[in-house]
Design a protein around this nucleic acid. Structure first.
Lengths: 211, 211
DNA sequence: TAGATTGTTAATCGATTAACAATC
DNA sequence: TAGATTGTTAATCGATTAACAATC
């Protein structure tokens, strides 16, 4: 009997919106929130909310609902957002800048510690608190930085696979890939493809469907 | 007998990467590409590629593969990317700016025609070729602009639902929602939630799984 | 207590994968 | 021709939804 893979990607995708809602409720001094209430606000079914919470090991009290404080700490633990993760960002274009300056990520345990680019005009310039590093120095600086995550926001002309292979060799554990290029890595490295055009394709299909 | 809903969201999500690959192959004077080749490059199974193409009405030739020129025009038609779509963008922060300046969206039929913000310091300033408009003028300017899509890149403190309801009332057909707030709209309006933290949650889960 | 809500098992639905005939 | 590849039907797998007992 083999161990189940237990993907539940859709469940993980929904978790941040549950967390956000629980934080709002908690800030409003609401101690409990029911699955029905959450479902109504997020446009989901209450069954799905309860099932998701069950998968995350979150329990509630019949007739009262879920304790907002428990939801917040429970979801953060479930997503490992209670553990700090060091990240480097490569490709400081407009999108890279937006992500680097999005200080809310800190709340999710994501700490961006360095920015890299290959453009001589950008290297040395400041973005927020960071001075942009030369990508040719990546290998040299990696061991001091010790990042577990690399955020790739390069232009699509770059050789993203070569860069990804180097990062894997250096010991990166996760790659948040905003480029259009798909990358192939070993089984011990996680890759999430966040190319914005995928979402736009789904939106277009949905618009067509609804006329 | 009711008509099938025919969601196939995962198929639509994969389409842009097929298109990108076909464009690259075509640019390299490669007239045909096989499903096996595409699968290898994208890290998918060839069965899935063939199934996706079948759903999109794309046909190939046994032993040769799919004509790259046909893939390009076929996928663009399937995604309605051959039809121009006018869009307004609301919330000109770092992410909004990055999307407004990302000129590649033009190739997908997305034409951003106006930017709005509520920050007095930003209104009137230029971003690329656009002068930022006052959000209070949205209703007044809408009928001249005639957008079908609204891109929401506001900060999460804003009342996104109120804004979305106004947009729907004015006749918007699709909302590309980058905020953390989920929005509820009628059945004739498409919403795609593109909150970046969902993807980060999946990446964290996958990293944990792979240790 | 009565009734609302949780938690879980079973049923359904949709997407992926397997198998294989058709074909250039 | 032989073999690689397409296209499709059937089987499997996983996620969603339904049903309902447990419970505060």
């Amino acid at each position: 009997m083999s161990v189940s893979k237990l993907e539940c990607t859709p469940t993980y995708e929904r978790m941040p919106s549950y967390l956000h809602l629980a934080e709002e409720a908690f800030a409003n001094k609401q101690n409990y929130i029911s699955g029905t209430e959450i479902a109504d606000i997020l446009g989901l079914s209450s069954i799905q909310v309860r099932k998701d919470f069950s998968l995350a090991g979150l329990t509630g009290i019949p007739k009262r609902g879920y304790k907002t404080a428990d939801l917040i700490s429970g979801i953060r633990t479930f997503l490992t957002w209670d553990i700090g993760k060091r990240a480097i960002l490569i490709g400081v274009g407009n999108l890279g800048k937006a992500i680097a300056l999005h200080d809310e990520f800190k709340n999710y345990g994501l700490e961006i510690i360095a920015l890299f680019d290959n453009n001589k005009k950008k290297i040395g310039k400041k973005v927020g608190q960071f001075k942009i590093d030369d990508i040719s120095q990546l290998q040299k600086k990696f061991s001091k930085l010790r990042p577990s995550i690399a955020i790739l926001t390069l232009s699509y002309q770059a050789d993203v696979q070569e860069l990804a292979s180097l990062l894997v060799e250096l010991g990166i554990q996760g790659i948040w890939n905003f480029t259009k290029k798909k990358i192939i890595v070993g089984n011990d490295v996680a890759v999430y493809n966040a190319d914005l055009t995928s979402g736009f394709a789904v939106l277009c299909a949905d618009m067509q469907r609804r006329q």
